[in-house]
Design a protein around this nucleic acid. Structure first.
Lengths: 252, 252
DNA sequence: CGTTATGTTGATAGCCGTCAACATACGTGG
DNA sequence: CCACGTATGTTGACGGCTATCAACATAACG
């Protein structure tokens, strides 16, 4: 970790955070420059390769984090091995269970991941001291709760076809390319799948075989196209959305 | 609504809140006596009978609330009528989506319910002004998120038998009688089911027929006893927990 | 006491899980 | 560059779990 210049000497000091790609959207966006310098002093970045475990259920990893890049999956595992992904988090989401040491789930890098790590204790003190930041965390947590409930509807009531279509819609909607509908670009945007078939199955409460079959079916129906195994494009997003049985108001 | 005495005249004024049964556990427990008087001035209580709608998805009810008594179910409904309960809330839980007008789900009284209602705007201002209270809301929201993820595992990966057993365990654990294991009381504690069979099915992602069959099966196996239709007792809670396939650490 | 709502039980069907074979992609060492 | 082994993904056959449809039982209610 490189030490930042003493913030008391000048207001024009530079921080690693200045180059952070998620700086203005993440929790730390609520901080003043001086506060950011304080946070900078306790934070450090770390990379995880795809598949690497970030935190384990029931044990305190000792830190909380911002996701700078990549996708993190949160999983629960039953004694006999059945597994369910209970959350997918993208940059610049916050990672970790504030105010409780033992998370009830595992966190694992779904892709290569870069995190900005904060030791738990000083970060929780900072949260308590900065209501703006705590409020950002509250709003992010409320959004995650809404997403979780959306997924409960999917897990409890949707068919395999609807589940897979819903997943592809979610990926298309959350991808960076989304929204870039150049009139001049007649090509369909390509989306990356951040998960393996096994992970998709664990996210949707299905088996890999069923996931594979439903993807093939959508492909043969001409709704989607596959480009390699981790990339796809959508012919008609409205039609895919319809197959997914997603209400208008649940897209939020 | 009865007006409280002017708090400036004395510190010994009385409030309706003094008699509130959830006062010390709810969000408002974070407030000083004067602040409580402020809240008291904008709050009012209201009763809902079982089945009555409290808030509808996509529209702003204009208020947030504490649950003083009863059970509230949060539901999502698909266009074709399929329904999923995405949350069950008991006193003294907080009800409503702070900082967003349009909740993505309906709230309905599962039993007769008493709420302490707060108009949205002044309550959100109060939240912003009182970090202690906001922090309580954050912690409650984090707990709800944990519960939602717990339920995602159930919906995605558990069998019908495990789902029903898990539900009964949850009721037993959250019931007021829970924990009162008098050595001198040889009778099994009786628990009330706060939901109809239809609601249980919608909570577990099953049909009412399957719920009914699984309950009958547990009864015939001697794991549970039914007393009427809305009351049950458990012969061996450990055995029921085992059937539910609940990990030790997920009971939190 | 009749009527309706709610819950139970049975028969059947269909969706999705399981098991198995095969295909493709990926990595490693010759 | 190719051969090989492993990991990952696809496709097919079959079976079981749970949904569906239906009849009946019980409870709730006027």
């Amino acid at each position: 970790m490189t030490a930042a210049p003493d913030p008391t000497t000048t207001l024009q000091f530079s921080l690693r955070c200045d180059h952070c790609t998620v700086r203005h959207k993440a929790l730390c966006g609520a901080l003043s420059r001086d506060e950011l310098a304080d946070l900078n002093r306790i934070a450090r970045t770390r990379r995880f390769v795809a598949g690497e475990s970030i935190m384990s259920a029931g044990e305190d990893s000792g830190f909380l984090a911002n996701i700078v890049g990549g996708v993190v999956k949160l999983t629960k595992i039953m004694a006999d091995g059945r597994q369910q992904i209970v959350g997918l988090q993208f940059a610049p989401d916050f990672l970790g269970r504030a105010f409780r040491k033992n998370a009830a789930y595992h966190a694992e890098a779904a892709t290569d991941v870069e995190l900005c790590l904060f030791p738990r204790t000083p970060f929780e003190s900072l949260l308590r001291a900065k209501p703006d930041m705590e409020q950002r965390l509250l709003e992010e947590t409320l959004d995650e709760l809404d997403s979780a409930r959306e997924w409960m509807l999917l897990l409890g009531r949707k068919t395999a076809q609807e589940k897979v279509a819903s997943f592809l819609c979610m990926i298309a909607r959350r991808s960076p390319q989304a929204g870039c509908h150049h009139e001049s670009a007649p090509v369909e945007p390509h989306y990356m799948l951040p998960l393996s078939r096994t992970d998709i199955a664990d996210y949707l409460g299905l088996t890999i075989e069923t996931v594979s079959r439903q993807i093939s079916k959508l492909k043969s129906q001409g709704i989607i196209r596959l480009h390699g195994i981790r990339e796809f494009s959508v012919r008609d997003l409205a039609e895919l959305t319809e197959i997914a049985n997603i209400d208008a108001d649940e897209q939020a």
